[in-house]
């Protein structure tokens, strides 16, 4: 059994936001790096999180030189590479999760070069075939997106672009025009990593983006605690938690599950 869902990736992602909105909250998308701490454990982590009714997943594919990532994800990807994790094994993980009945959208996150080595057409085809719903490529700005845009559109996959606090009106308009699925909103200037506080001017920042687009906005970088989740809840259509979960998972799957559960609880109405 493989992917039993009948919708395209884009539809599945849209349905994810619709459901969260109907429940009066943001969508919660945890990041799980395949192959960390080992292949089986990363699959277990996705299943444990799915059981908490998270809304979707960012599935991390390792790269030797992750220049948008801070120390936590750097270390995790290094370990994943030492464990022999490749694009193929990441897609195999997605296929295995779908065959176990996982329903949530999954977006493949990775850097460009391994995808180029795989072949962009073949990669997009195999991502779709494995049952994933979109691509997140931090070193692919919209100017270079022609490498993937056509094949993603053909396969119904979302190709996610980023906006950052440094993005000016021109950039916001460009990304809004080309966006599919959602826009990944970087919370701060910086690399990924758990942080103590979210930036104070969050509302102004999001309003600035909202003025130009009604594409769903998903925030990442630094969202680490239930309190952060409460701050971004409803302000954004969704949020990604990565480094904080990886840090927690160093102590085992239970602390990771507990953190995720407390974040999930925090965005429930009245949570």
């Amino acid at each position: 059994m493989t992917d039993t869902r009948t919708t395209t990736g884009l539809d599945a992602i849209a349905a994810m936001f619709d459901r969260a909105k109907a429940e009066g909250r943001s969508a919660f998308l945890p990041y799980v790096p395949v192959g960390y701490p080992d292949y089986e454990s990363s699959l277990d982590a996705v299943e444990a999180l799915a059981a908490l009714d998270v809304d979707g997943f960012e599935i991390g594919m390792p790269f030797s030189d992750p220049l948008a990532d801070g120390p936590t994800i750097q270390e995790a990807t290094q370990i994943a590479l030492e464990n022999g994790t490749t694009i193929r094994s990441c897609l195999e993980a997605v296929r295995a999760l779908r065959s176990k009945g996982l329903q949530q959208p999954m977006l493949m996150m990775g850097y460009l070069n391994p995808m180029l080595a795989y072949g962009t057409e073949a990669f997009v085809h195999d991502v779709k075939a494995a049952g994933a719903d979109g691509l997140i490529i931090p070193d692919l700005p919209p100017e270079e997106a022609h490498l993937f845009a056509e094949s993603c559109a053909r396969e119904g996959l979302a190709l996610i672009f980023f906006l950052a606090p440094t993005s000016n009106e021109e950039r916001i308009k460009l990304v809004a025009e080309r966006a599919s699925g959602f826009i990944y909103v970087v919370s701060v200037t910086g690399v990924t990593g758990a942080r103590r506080d979210l930036p104070p001017d969050l509302v102004d920042y999001i309003n600035r983006l909202r003025a130009h687009t009604d594409v769903p906005l998903v925030m990442g970088f630094g969202i680490s605690t239930p309190d952060h989740a409460r701050q971004v809840n409803k302000l954004l259509d969704g949020f990604i938690v990565a480094s904080a979960l990886i840090r927690a998972s160093k102590q085992g799957i239970d602390p990771m599950r507990e953190l995720a559960a407390s974040i999930r609880q925090a965005i429930e109405p009245g949570g």
């Binding site: 700005p141 270079e144 672009f161 980023f162 606090p165 950039r171 970087v186």
Partner: peptide, 10 residues
């Protein structure tokens, strides 16, 4: 070309 995170593009 220019293959960088969006934060750096501006």
């Amino acid at each position: 070309g220019r293959f960088v995170p969006e934060t750096l593009v501006p």
